[in-house]
Nucleic acid binder design. Structure first.
Length: 264
DNA sequence: TTCCATGTTCCGCA
DNA sequence: TTGCGGAACATGGA
């Protein structure tokens, strides 16, 4: 689930619940969830601090600390946040808990241990270390810079869209949605697309992500015409009614309409 | 039981 | 040297 729109929802949730509260203690159940720093160091850096803001970059969520540095969160393939009273049961697969002085706690959930938590002293440097391109919704990523970043790439357009070094935030589901709305076959070679076509894809990308982020990534609230509600072998194209098909692109399942999304 | 899953990272190959 | 594609990683549901 967690692609850019989902993480945007987590960001709003964190903003609404957990900012400017003193962290009495932090507990991490599984050391494998912490990357880059030791589990003890993570807990020590969080204790006594407040989360003073949030910043999202692609699928990564950062929360600068009042004591310096920033908490780093990534949710992997399934995860989320849960803010509740200290006595409430923690959700399954809770990996990190911030216990606030106000008697509430924030649980960070990530089922498959592919997510992670860390501490960084410099968000921009962290992004550079992880080879993150500009956030897909950032102001700095205008149409021409998007076209420039994609042009000349050798692989399939879907691979390029999902490449976090090209543009950060797009995953498998939303890549399929964008390609559906842009009427592009997922395996189309980037080199077969001219600047106009890539520019159209930029417009679609921004619209899809903006609309989805507003819904907090909740796929059930996606507009009726969107294909992401219909991933599956028995499903039909919301545009032409034909049967959807799937192929593997870059090892990931791509759902598309063979009639609407012509190759090239 | 086997396969597959919405992500990132690492490695081999062109 | 660089970029691309596949495998590994961990866990649970179909």
């Amino acid at each position: 689930m967690p692609e850019l729109p989902d993480v945007a929802g987590f960001q709003r949730y964190l903003d609404a619940t957990s900012l400017h509260q003193r962290i009495a203690s932090a507990s991490c159940h599984d050391p494998r969830f912490v990357k880059g720093v030791s589990r003890r160091a993570l807990q020590r850096r969080l204790k006594g601090a407040e989360l003073v803001a949030t910043r999202r970059w692609g699928k990564w969520l950062f929360a600068p600390l009042s004591t310096g540095g920033a908490l780093v969160l990534h949710f992997g393939m399934t995860g989320g946040l849960d803010y509740a009273a200290a006595g409430d049961d923690e959700p399954r697969h809770t990996r990190l808990v911030l216990h606030f002085a106000n008697g509430y706690r924030l649980a960070v959930i990530s089922q498959r241990m592919i997510g992670r938590a860390s501490i960084t002293d410099d968000v921009d440097a962290f992004a550079a270390e992880h080879d993150l391109g500009p956030d897909a919704l950032s102001d700095g990523l205008d149409r021409s810079s998007f076209v420039e970043r994609l042009s000349g790439r050798r692989g399939a357009i879907k691979s390029a869209l999902m490449n976090q070094a090209v543009v950060a935030g797009i995953g498998n589901v939303y890549a399929d949605e964008m390609l559906f709305q842009a009427k592009l076959h997922p395996a189309t070679a980037v080199t077969d697309l001219d600047a106009d076509r890539l520019g159209e894809l930029y417009t679609v990308m921004r619209r899809v992500l903006r609309v989805a982020a507003r819904k907090g990534g909740n796929g059930e609230q996606a507009p009726r015409g969107w294909v992401l509600r219909r991933r599956g072998a028995e499903e039909t194209c919301p545009r032409c009614g034909g049967r959807l098909d799937s192929i593997k692109v870059n090892g990931r399942t791509s759902w598309f309409c063979p009639a609407c999304q012509a190759k090239g």
